[in-house]
Design a protein around this nucleic acid. Sequence first.
DNA 1: CGAGTGCCCTGACAGC
DNA 2: TGCTGTCAGGGCACTC
Length: 276
Amino acid sequence: MPELPEVETVRRELEPWLTGRTIVKAERVDAPEGKKYANLERAAGQKILGVKRRGKFMILPLSGEDELIIHLGMTGIISPKLFDKHVRAKLTLNEGKNPELYFQDVRRFGRFLVVRAGDYKTLPTLDAIGPEPLTKDFTEEHFSKALKKSSTAIKTYLLSQKPVSGVGNIYADEALWRTNIHPLTPANKISKDKIPLLMQAIREILAASIEAQGTTLSDYRTVNGEVGEYITQLKAYGHEGDECENCGTTIERMVIGGRSSFYCPQCQKRPRKSKK
DNA sequence: CGAGTGCCCTGACAGC
DNA sequence: TGCTGTCAGGGCACTC
């Protein structure tokens, strides 16, 4: 599932392909009309000025003060090649290499739409998104202040994109495993000494995964059609029943906020419920 | 308004 | 073999 490393991998491939190209036509294909594919017709005639990323959202500034927003959802793939099925949107570019871009998304959780530059009111997660974890914007001051705001489980809170952007189900489990934090620990109960460790784990894991072109579990592919190789470095996610690499205890799985969560019951002790 | 729940959507897979 | 049920989860609508 595309999280920050997967989206960043795709972004890096799109940048040299798309920057400076003019959109001749942008169209919805096999997708319902609605918010997820809004305003595509407006992109025609606009030049793509670059390919940026905020969290898991790709943002392509256009010359007419619009932006093309692309979110891969669970199964979104971008390719100059047309596959048989599941084409949700298509860009036709001006003459040059690979003049067609296909957005192909089996499960339709993705988005591909045009907005006014900076106007994200139809995308509330992007509108309220936290700092980029691999930039200097991700400071301990900001992160600890954000964690104090919420009593919800740290796992769930990380997935909200509010304290930091780009962390999804896989890397949240990995970062919590590495820092010995139980995923149900209330965000505002993370101890002061653990906060910088958790930040560092998030940074290192995401950076290492970018190096590996992300994690492919099933659908995710790079623009070139390659798989991400970080799956071999996962320590917790998907390892139910395996031995914890730290202590040998069997990794367990539980559902938190509707998401599978993998953790070591020995290394990641569940916090005691506070007495009233 | 924060927190919690369930929905969207399709394919893979288990079980009978 | 083929049917049915379950699971996967990012983002968001909805409820309390």
